[in-house]
């Protein structure tokens, strides 16, 4: 159990005391650094021939996804299994469980079944927060509406830190549908708390009201957002946005805001291209750029497992006495 001991030593400076991981807004810079340091120490486990440690042995973890997701759900599942937790998946069609009270009934049942950690994804903002207030189980937010997606932002931060050696002072441009993006919000909190400069870029129809008051620079001009940036984070643009008249057409969006080879030429040569996935190839991101030398999109995915292992490990609480003596 040497690996777990290493992590606990990391944690010695600051003990994680929160029951839940709901978002980066409510975390201090120190707590975010603790999560990143813990993730860094867990990364190596996934590189071993036997990818398993006993840190969460005997804990029950449930993936409760009310919205379709493949990569986040799989990433959490692998993270839990690599920590030896008992892992279960529950997927509920958003259409069959639409009322909050039904969700709460589901949660109360899971609590009665003595689940330790619930990982929740829901299309409505605040669902994990409502649930967290009403259960003693630990809640990890795996994405709530347009609000937060803390583990995504943490894996983005971890990737930037690995690639650039630091977060502080980095200039990060987040480009796309900011208004509907939980990834943008969580990254904005995480990046500003760790001292990065954030530029949010998109047409005014995709920028939420007064977002500049949250500490970001805002521009409609994608070329301006690209110039001088250390990191370009592209967000998925969804077809529904066209229906809601937020963009005239996806073609128009690609021409105005898409990151293609020509635009990439005006960026710093060592700029990182990131995307939370799934990519709309040929809309917000040209295929060449997505697969090109600046892209760290697959590193993001790999880091996702380490970050989720760290989140599961920390919210599971301090080690029990008998475990510590073992």
């Amino acid at each position: 159990m040497a690996e777990a001991t290493i992590t606990r030593e990391h944690a010695q400076g600051l003990q994680w005391i929160k029951k839940d991981l709901l978002g980066l807004e409510e975390l201090s810079a120190e707590e975010i650094r603790l999560l990143l340091a813990t993730a860094e120490s867990f990364r190596e486990i996934s590189l071993r021939p036997i990818k398993k440690v006993p840190a969460l042995r005997g804990k029950t973890v449930v993936n409760l996804f009310f919205e379709p997701s493949t990569r986040t759900r799989t990433s959490f599942e692998l993270a839990a299994k690599r920590l030896s937790a008992d892992m279960m998946n529950i997927t509920a069609e958003a259409s069959s469980i639409t009322k909050g009270e039904t969700i709460l009934d589901t949660i109360r049942n899971l609590e009665a079944l003595k689940v330790d950690i619930l990982i929740i994804r829901h299309a409505a903002a605040g669902v994990p927060h409502t649930i967290a207030r009403q259960t003693s189980a630990s809640i990890i937010n795996a994405g709530d509406g347009a609000h937060e997606h803390p583990t995504q932002a943490l894996l983005d931060l971890l990737t930037m830190q690995q690639q650039k050696g630091r977060i502080e002072g980095l200039h990060v441009s987040i480009i796309g549908d900011i208004a509907h993006s939980r990834v943008a919000r969580s990254n904005l909190w995480g990046l500003t708390k760790l001292g990065a400069r954030v530029t949010l870029c998109g047409p005014p129809t995709l920028l939420p009201a007064q977002v500049e008051e949250l500490g970001a620079r805002v521009t409609w001009d994608v070329d301006e957002a690209i110039r001088g940036a250390d990191v370009l984070m592209l967000l998925r643009i969804q077809h529904e946005r066209q229906e809601a008249a937020l963009v005239p057409s996806l073609r128009e969006y690609r021409l105005r805001y898409g990151l293609d080879e020509a635009r990439l030429k005006s960026a710093k040569p060592d700029v990182l291209v990131m995307h939370p996935g799934p990519i709309n190839r040929g809309v917000e991101l040209d295929s060449y750029v997505a697969d090109g030398p600046n892209s760290v999109i697959l590193e993001q995915v790999t880091n996702g497992v380490a970050v989720r292992m760290a989140a599961l490990y920390l919210v599971s609480g301090p080690p029990k006495t008998e475990e510590a003596n073992a």
Binding site: G145, A146, E148, P208, A209, Q210, E213
Partner: peptide, 15 residues
């Protein structure tokens, strides 16, 4: 209300 709090919470605002 459509404003800073709605933006922070990711909730849809009515102006």
């Amino acid at each position: 209300h459509e404003g800073l709090v709605a933006t922070t919470l990711g909730l849809r605002g009515a102006p």
